[in-house]
């Protein structure tokens, strides 16, 4: 069984981003970039499937600028076997990412594709579902547990009310939620080994996708800032302030 894992290079989750003063976007100059945290969980899951003897090969794919190669190297150091970089300097909306990934899936013929549930930069939470639609596959989003049983996938998902368990036909799409696993740190020997693993370079055109923008970003602004309030000295003072503010009876 082959597993494909799409990974995105994003601003590190610890960075407090700044909006550019001309409202054209977010300032990404000299900002630390990392693999999208949900994608680390997706890579980890794929590698565990391989270690458990269920998967035979794990392929990491990233669509983006040349530096996304570094993100792919991280996945290789975690245990993925090889990488594919689809190089483009354009902004690629999820629908276009999904179209490119569909092209890759048709070439690679994976049995399972594990994505992150959400990229923490655009917060879209779309790509996996779109890819499932384009391929006509089942989708198991926000997964907290994945079990493969022959041709079916038993999957537990995090939903608003709690947890839901589904049976999906394979091949299938899974998107990883936070509780699926705890991703490993790559060891130094594995980082060294990853340098020798192959990364293919492609372009969106290789998959017949011309990147049509559906959405034009008119501006990016700062949200209203909250002012820090006051410190109260005691629980009594807190309760009387809350009564004054009319938020408790």
């Amino acid at each position: 069984m082959k597993v494909l894992v799409p990974i995105k290079r994003v601003v590190d989750y610890n960075v407090k981003i700044r909006v550019k003063s001309d409202q054209s976007g977010v300032d990404l100059a000299n900002v630390k970039m990392s693999m999208n945290p949900f994608d680390e969980i997706a890579v980890e899951e794929a590698v565990r499937l391989k270690e458990a003897g269920k998967a035979t090969e794990v392929v990491a794919v990233s669509i983006g600028v040349q530096q996304a190669t570094e993100t792919i190297r991280t996945a290789l150091a975690m245990g993925a076997d090889r990488g594919i970089l689809v190089k483009t300097d354009d902004v690629v909306e999820p629908i276009n990412v999904a179209k490119i990934l569909k092209g890759i899936a048709e070439e690679e013929k994976p049995d399972l594709i594990i994505l992150g549930k959400q990229a923490i930069d655009d917060d879209c939470n779309q790509t996996g579902q779109m890819l499932a639609a384009l391929l006509g596959w089942a989708q198991g989003t926000f997964a907290s547990k994945v079990e493969i049983d022959g041709e079916t996938l038993n999957l537990t998902r995090e939903i608003d009310g709690g947890l839901q368990t589904l049976k999906l036909k394979m091949p299938a799409i899974v998107t990883a939620d936070l509780r699926l696993n705890e991703p490993r740190y790559a060891s130094l020997p594995n980082i060294m080994k990853a340098k020798k693993k192959p990364i293919d370079e492609k372009a969106p055109g290789d998959f017949g996708v011309d990147i049509k923008q559906h959405l034009e970003v008119l501006k990016v602004t700062e949200p209203p800032q909250r002012e820090a309030g006051i410190k109260v000295e005691s629980v009594q003072e807190l309760v009387s302030k809350l009564k004054e503010a009319g938020v408790i009876g």
């Binding site: 923490i120 655009d122 923008q213 559906h214 959405l215 034009e216 970003v217 501006k219 700062e222």
Partner: peptide, 14 residues
Amino acid sequence: PIYAGNAIQTVKSS
């Protein structure tokens, strides 16, 4: 909202 609500994007759909 994008970036965990630290920026608000205005988008026009075609």
